[in-house]
């Protein structure tokens, strides 16, 4: 039987789709390569001192990343300190406590919070939340802990503390949703056995759900951390943008991302630009490591829990 011969497009199709997949792989590699190459002048000029110097003076071509790195670490730490416990109890509420109708509404609201663009948090933070902090929260903190070094200085509203709190709001939905999924992975039989023994909801949570899901929760926190560290617009709006390190959380500071957002278009000089790209490289490196750790950890956990089930 003679069939009509036609061109076999399958190899081309396969090759084309593979090329698209490899493009993703290539992108990650070229981002890393580009950042290293772009930062090379600064890497050569400042060496390791880049990370330990606090001087940031474009007029004198002095660039040190310390205040940006410090600001990133502190604002992220504040954010995580607030977001992690809150996310845990909200996930608990969603999985164990809320009746289904409430669960759907609260779950939907948390997902909506995750969808709000960073810049909207920034607008709200700068024009509404920072004045609120300055008028109520900061004077109150200063009055309950007089002389406490973290709560020194004039309550300006903008600064490290406000940035940290807004970061907390932004990563909360991510940690909550991963934690909720982890809690739901706990086999019902195990929980039911504990309830059958007469345990209260909290006892089941503390003795069964949390030990069972703790590793997943840790992974969720890593993911949230990776997000908080690179968050740009909201932080840029409220952190104050000052290249100085101060002990007080009320003081203005900056973060790696906010420095990039504010100064990148102003970098007229090659060395200035290279220093900014090196800041980007530091940020990219840290997020890569965090992502790596989180994925590895979550995958290990999933495999383990799969084996138990």
């Amino acid at each position: 039987m003679q069939t009509k011969t036609h061109i076999n497009l399958d190899p081309a199709f396969r090759w084309l789709t593979l090329a698209s997949g490899l493009a993703v792989l290539l992108l990650v590699g070229s981002i890393l390569y580009t950042l290293v190459m772009g930062a090379m002048p600064a890497l050569k000029h400042f060496g390791f001192g880049f990370l330990t110097s606090q001087e940031w003076n474009p007029a004198f071509m002095e660039f040190g990343a310390l205040s940006s790195v410090y600001g990133t670490l502190i604002s992220t730490a504040i954010g995580m300190l607030i977001a992690v416990p809150l996310s845990l109890v909200i996930a608990l509420f969603l999985v164990e406590i809320a009746p289904p109708a409430v669960r759907r509404i609260v779950g939907g609201a948390i997902e909506l919070l995750a969808a709000i663009p960073s810049i909207i948090f920034g607008m709200w933070g700068l024009f509404v939340f920072a004045p609120f902090m300055a008028d109520y929260i900061q004077p109150w903190l200063a009055s309950i802990a007089p002389g406490f070094p973290l709560f020194q200085g004039p309550p300006m509203g903008i600064g490290m503390l406000s940035a940290g709190i807004i970061l907390a709001l932004m990563v909360l939905p991510f940690i909550t949703s991963v934690t909720r999924d982890v809690f739901q992975m706990v086999p019902a039989v195990v929980k039911e056995s504990a309830y059958g023994m007469g345990s209260t909801t909290w006892e089941v949570t503390r003795k069964v759900t949390i030990p069972y899901g703790i590793q997943g929760v840790v992974g969720a926190c890593f993911l949230g951390l990776g997000r908080a560290i690179g968050e740009t617009m909201a932080v840029t709006f409220v952190i104050g943008n000052r290249h100085e390190i101060s002990a007080s959380l009320f003081a203005a500071g900056n973060s790696i991302a906010s420095t990039l957002a504010n100064e990148f278009t102003e970098a007229s000089d090659d060395l200035y630009l290279a220093a900014l790209i090196e800041l980007g490289l530091v940020l990219f490196g840290v997020t890569l490591i965090l992502q790596w750790a989180a994925r590895w950890w979550l995958r290990r956990t999933a495999r383990k829990m799969g084996a138990v089930r």
Binding site: V28, S30, I31, T34, L35, G38, L223, G226, R227, I229, G230, E231, T232, A257, L260, A261, F264, L276, I277, G280, L283, F284, T287, L288, L290, Q291
Partner: peptide
């Protein structure tokens, strides 16, 4: 998971 500002720099 890469911060969007890094994509901007790239």
């Amino acid at each position: 998971g890469t911060p969007s500002i890094i994509i901007g720099v790239f």
